[in-house]
Amino acid sequence: MSWSYVVVDPLLRDAVIYASTLSMLSLGLTLTYLTTKVPNFAHGSLATIGSYTLLTFTSVLKLNAYYSIPVAFLITGGASAAFYLLALRPLINRGAGLLHQMIATIAFELILIASLNIYADLLTRTFRIQSRDVLLRRFDVQIEGVGPGVFLASVVFVAVTLTALVLLLHRTRFGVAMRAAIENPMLAGTLGVNVKLVYLFSWFLAGGLAGVSGVLLGLHFQQDPAFGSRMLVSIFASSILGGLSSIYGAVLGGYMIGLVEVYGIFQLSRVVGGWILPYRIIFPLLIMAVTLLVFPRGLSGLRLSAVVSRFRRGGVTP
């Protein structure tokens, strides 16, 4: 029983990689929801853009897998910002309702799925490389005592993103303007904050983070053009668990859902038997349902002091 054995429990590793990327995806979804108030139904497929950037880097350009991270960030961020500029902003300017904005994100999802499939076809027919059901683990670096580099990279990614966001939101003028625009767009606009720029930046950032998540997912899990789209249920569940009102709640929600979905279910299958494994999707759905029923404002709506005082008063609130 060496130290490396403890760290390299492959199941926990899978769970941490999945949960880290899921938390960054739900952070992005929550960020765009906070600013433009529309849930982005295409957010999962944005991650797949990152996965296919990775595939292009490793299989076509024959470059180091990790070089694709900044490129994926820019491409996916650009796609997301383009959607906001070309579709969402005109709709908002014309006074379109929330439902029509949601349908616009569905149109974006259709465009993304079609484009990703077209790109996958192009890769196969032009470069003769496998572009569906691909596993790219062999392009990852191996780190002594840790295992595949993506395990470390996913945790570092979350830590760097959170640190940068905290610094941005609390230490820069633009960050303060961002928070003001989220809190009260009208008032912030009156005080000279460029609210539209803030919205554009959040769509770009959300897309960019989704792209990097896609690279990391692609380094560890089998990819196809619908991978991100399938993750959408978990992204929604994490964001709702996080409360859709705080990006830190979204990160926490992402970790909880991700760990339960991958690690929790295997632990459960040891107790109740393997028949449970196909029902993996039940867990995010169940957590989502319980959140909506019991504490609809999510984790960020729970105040620890209120919970503590409730228990002190005898556990019953009027």
Binding site: I103, A104, A107, L110, N117, D121
Partner: peptide
């Protein structure tokens, strides 16, 4: 250089945004 079935999804997404 790609399967035509994806063309209608692509066109439909664009048409949908234009209609909205």
């Amino acid at each position: 250089p790609f399967s035509v079935i994806w063309l209608d999804r692509l066109l439909m997404g664009i048409v949908l945004i234009l209609i909205l």
